[in-house]
């Protein structure tokens, strides 16, 4: 297992997270190979967002460890990009689309240094990729839900990371945004980046992703979609009525 660790992007060992001393993630072992496009699926309250937040060091686990390319997160944060849930911020904040995307460059800049022309150029490129260039000077509350999601995506692209974590990027977006996001995901895979997506829509898993993790407090299964995306694992994750979950 150790021998192949060169190709492991994210390694999670015995991770346990508790809110108010009630476990929400329990003894998770997970290895995410480099270059996969992975969906994390599971019912509501299964701990999907919690899992990526604890990998990203936003939440402190009570036990276990996380390694990004073999090192703790604190040393590797420049290799990681994050797209939070759209609802996690106040979109009435006084700032523009371009400004939000520029925030993606702050990590590499570090403390105090300000973004310059170079950063602005890459922010504009990212906006272009997300199809949001015409909206660069819009106040962010004047964007539609899908456009806001694309801004978050552009902000992650600007981070020029190796691993991308996305928390429900398809939540409440229009069809054209969904296609735009999928194209970006495929582009990232072509560049051998690793992408980890918390995903709700079970129907689209085989179409969009090549790797999947089933999660419900415990890890149920992880592996290539073609091998493990089956009724057996779906039942284990969602209970007997998983078909209802699919058709939601």
């Amino acid at each position: 297992m150790r021998a192949s660790s060169d190709h492991i992007a994210v390694q999670v060992d015995d991770l346990t997270v508790a809110y108010n001393y009630k476990p929400v993630l329990w003894d998770i072992d997970l290895e995410i190979p480099q270059g996969v496009l992975m969906a994390i699926v599971g019912p509501n309250g299964a701990g999907k967002s919690t899992l990526i937040k604890s990998i990203l060091d936003i939440i402190d686990p009570i036990a276990g460890s996380v390694r990004i390319f073999g090192k703790p997160y604190k040393k590797q944060y420049q290799k990681v990009a994050y797209v939070p849930q759209k609802g996690s911020v106040d979109w009435d904040f006084p700032t523009t689309a371009l400004d939000v995307v520029l925030m993606g460059t702050y990590g590499k800049l570090g403390w105090i240094r300000r973004p310059g022309e170079k950063q602005k150029k890459s922010a504009l490129e990212a906006l272009e990729k997300a199809g949001m260039l015409p909206f660069r000077d819009r106040q962010i509350s004047q964007l539609s839900g899908g456009q806001q999601q694309r801004i978050f995506l552009a902000r992650a692209l600007v981070q020029q990371a190796e691993i991308y974590f996305m928390d429900e990027p398809f939540q409440g977006v229009d069809a054209s945004t969904e296609i735009a996001i999928i194209n970006i995901l495929k582009e990232l895979r072509k560049q051998k980046k690793t992408v980890i997506v918390v995903h709700h829509d079970l129907q689209t898993v085989p179409e969009y992703f090549d790797w999947v993790t089933f999660l419900n407090v415990k890890k149920i299964a992880t592996g290539p979609v073609k091998d493990i995306f089956n009724d057996d694992n779906l039942t284990k994750t969602y209970g007997i009525n998983y078909k209802v979950a699919i058709n939601q």
Binding site: T16, P23, I62, K218
Partner: peptide, 9 residues
Amino acid sequence: VLLLTFLLH
């Protein structure tokens, strides 16, 4: 919780 974690492990 730690006990539970440990047992589960």
